[in-house]
Design a protein around this nucleic acid. Structure first.
Length: 537
DNA sequence: CGGTTTTGACCAGCGC
DNA sequence: GCGCTGGTCAAAACCG
């Protein structure tokens, strides 16, 4: 705001004057994205054209001249002085532009990066959660009672579902815990979840059933005709709440939404808006948008339901986040008690060997609230390490950011993000060993290799200011290092033959489970998330 | 004109 | 049973 015409003016000048060097350099550093560049370019041009009929362009030309004619021998001394001044000004402008560029880039890429990062993180969390033996200590019926319903809502944004992830995990878990029966059931469960819900809502009108619709609609029919057990716990639906700083009335998550209601919620002067997805007919996904009462710059978006249609790549990032978060919420110990929910992942993350490892750029708190009417996980994207309003200030670390998992009624337990990865890594080998894996497969993730991978992960994350890239690289390293075990586990899954890990998931799903495949493909189509998505799936 | 937003009304769940 | 609250519906208004 403060930059106003000046900044735009500067942008224009620099864009025209330095795009060949600075932009290229920035592009090499990965700091400038195409969208940012062109948006700025457009904005600058608009500003230039709109304000003074080409006057801005003259300034731009001056800027160009500064660079090209400053050493011109034919320039008069006066012109040289002027050029010198202008060059200094250009330098200042350049610096200002860099700052503005960076700010603009961060703002524009904020949501995408956040969602992508957290999607990845929570897929990791999901995986870790599934590693936890507690999950398999619960009887199958308990799992069904609690998890069947919510799991139909696990993909609030219709991400490539967690099917592949869960298959992977369940495969590991099955081999690690030897409790194959619940896993098999869950696997079939997931097969059902991966099935399209298109047929489900084909005859469902909004006018029929009202709230029942939102429950039944999200209780997708299983592939084998089995009905989701939504009726078992009609009042409990998984929700994923995302807190993010945004001046916009609604965060752009890649989906199309139609507002169908607005309500004044108790205790909040800001109205709560209700949206439903309009990307497909009868898509059951809904979301609520409300500003935080305490800080109106914080936008709280709560997702609920499961898309019954493929999503654009942009939407899969949020899908990854919300779905994995919901999965983490719901795939924990088969209990709705906060303490248990807390204990499960927290115990995992407080690994003595890795708890001290931190990732510099993660900056969120995840709040599990199972005591609410709906089990809700809140992803707080406002816990920025940088300045307020710049949740992903790439360079502005001020404190070790953490991911916390805690019940609503308890103080957050900060968990170093790398612990998630750390826990993800070292657990693989022990789990593999416990699962009586082939020695060759289990040996792929030896202690030393774990350490090496961990170091690689840490190095990648700490070296790259781009958290997403770093995380992708980290996870790629993880998957590369543990790929053997991974695939060995994968082969134990009911559908392991089709989904042999990472890239295989995309390819395999493309012809196996059409809707999930479409979603998976959509997710995989995201250039930046591909490595993460496919790796973790 | 079709899609979206607005807004009052309705309904269900829950606590007292 | 009653009131409160959250969630949804649906008609009217609005918009491109």
């Amino acid at each position: 705001m403060d930059h106003g015409p000046l900044s735009l003016h500067h942008r224009g000048a620099t864009l025209f004057g330095h795009r060949h060097d600075e932009t290229a350099a920035a592009a090499r550093r990965g700091e400038i994205r195409e969208v940012d560049f062109f948006s700025l370019d457009t904005g600058a041009r608009q500003q230039l054209n709109g304000g003074g009929g080409g006057g801005g362009r003259d300034d731009v030309n001056i800027g160009l001249d500064l660079l090209t004619t400053a050493t011109d021998a034919t320039t008069s001394a006066e012109e040289k002085a002027t050029a010198r001044n202008q060059k200094m000004e250009a330098s200042a402008v350049e610096g200002e532009l860099r700052r503005v560029l960076d700010e603009n880039r961060r703002l524009r890429g904020m949501l995408e990066e956040l969602t992508r990062s957290y999607g990845t993180l929570y897929q990791q969390l999901l995986q870790v959660t599934h590693h936890h033996p507690h999950q398999h200590q619960h009887p199958d019926h308990l799992m069904n009672n609690r998890s069947s319903l919510p799991r139909t809502h696990l993909n609030p944004m219709g991400m490539p579902n967690n099917t592949s992830t869960r298959q992977l995990l369940e495969g590991r878990a099955a081999s690690s815990t030897a409790q194959t029966q619940p896993d098999a059931d869950e696997a079939s469960d997931e097969a059902g979840e991966a099935s399209p819900s298109l047929s489900n809502n084909a005859g469902n009108n909004d006018s029929d059933g009202k709230r029942k619709m939102s429950q039944d609609a999200t209780a997708l029919p299983r592939e084998n005709g089995e009905q989701a057990s939504s009726a078992e716990l009609p009042g409990r639906k998984a929700r994923v709440s995302v807190r993010a700083r945004s001046e916009a009335p609604m965060i752009s998550d890649g989906c199309q939404w139609r507002k169908y209601g607005q309500k004044m919620a108790k205790g909040n002067p800001c109205p709560r808006a209700y949206y439903r997805c309009t990307m497909a007919v009868a898509c059951p996904v809904r979301k609520q948008v409300q500003r935080c009462a305490e800080d109106k710059t914080i936008l709280v978006t709560t997702y609920e339901g499961h898309h019954n249609h493929p999503l654009p790549p942009a939407a899969t990032t949020m899908a990854n986040t919300t779905s994995a978060a919901a999965a983490m919420l719901l795939s924990g110990p088969a209990t709705s008690r906060d303490g248990a929910l807390l204990g499960h992942p927290a115990a995992l993350f407080h690994h003595p060997h890795h708890a001290a490892t931190t990732i510099p750029y993660a900056s969120t708190m995840a709040t599990l609230s199972a005591s609410a009417p709906f089990p809700t996980i809140t992803l707080d994207l406002t816990q920025s390490p940088g300045a307020p309003g710049l949740p992903l200030a790439h360079g502005g670390l001020q404190r070790p950011p953490v991911v916390g998992i805690h019940p609503a009624a308890a103080p957050a337990i900060p968990i170093p993000v790398a612990s998630a990865l750390a826990m993800f890594l070292p657990q693989r080998a022990p789990m593999a060993a416990a699962a009586n894996m082939p020695a060759a497969a289990a040996g792929l993730v030896s202690r030393q290799q774990q350490q090496s991978v961990m170091e690689t992960v840490t190095a990648a994350i700490t070296a790259d200011p781009n958290f997403t890239t770093a995380l992708a690289a980290a996870i790629s390293s993880v998957m590369t290092g543990g790929g053997g075990a991974h695939q060995a586990h994968q082969s134990t899954t009911p559908r392991g033959g089709s989904n042999n890990g990472m890239g295989g998931e995309v390819n395999g799903s493309a012809g196996v489970t059409p809707p999930a495949a479409a979603q998976t493909a959509a997710g995989g189509a995201h250039p930046a998330t591909q490595s993460c998505t496919t790796s973790t799936n």
